[in-house]
Amino acid sequence: MQLEELITRFQQKDTFAFERLHAMYAENICGVINTIVKDDNLAEEICQDVFVKVWSNALSYNSSKGRFFTWIVNIARNAAIDVMRSKNYKNQKKNLPADYFVSILESKLEDEETDVNTKGLHSLVSKLKEKCIQVIELLYFKGYTQKEVSEELDIPIGTVKTRNRSCISQLRENMQL
C-alpha cells in the first residue's frame, strides 16, 4: 500500500492503517524524542502520547505541512521539549549541550546485548564527520532553523544549506556500502 493511501485511510480513522504507520515510524519518532530526553523509558512514554496526539489531530495534516514523517517529528519534538521544561530541565533549545545522538549510540554499544543491527548503525554514524552530525541533529531532530544553526555552529547561514546537502549525501553513500 502506498504511503499516501495509508495516510488517507489513517485520516478516516482506520486503526489498521494507523498501526502500519506506527510500525513504519515508531522507532524513528521515539528515537528523535530520545535525542532530546536521553532516557529510554521516558522517551517511550512520551512517544505513546505523541502517537495518540497524531491520531487525535489526524485531520490537521495536509501536504502543506511537509512530509508526513516530518509532521510527526514536529509534534514529537514539541512534546519532548514540553516534558523537559515541565520537569524543570532548563535546557531550552539554545541551551541544549552539544551532546549529540552519537553519545546515545555509544552508550548502547557499551551494553553487551547490543545487536548486530545497532553496530551497523554505529559504523554508519561513526563514518560521518562531526560537523555533519551536528548539522543533521540540529536541523532534523532539535528543530533549529537555519539561522539558529548558523549561530550555534558559528558558520555563515548560506553554508548551513550546502553543508546539510553534502552531509546527507555522505550519509546516503555510507548506507549503500
Binding site: H22, Y25, A26, E27, N28, I29, C30, G31, V32, I33, N34, T35, D40, N41, A43, E44, C47, F69, V73, F101, I104, L105, K108, D111, T118, L121, H122, L124, V125, I136, Y140, F141, I168, L171, M175
Partner: peptide, 14 residues
C-alpha cells in the same frame, strides 16, 4: 534520516 533517527530509538519494545 529514518535510519539515523532509528539509531537513537529507546531500547524498549514500542
Amino acid at each position: 534520516i529514518l535510519v539515523l533517527s532509528k539509531t537513537a530509538a529507546p531500547k524498549v519494545p514500542l
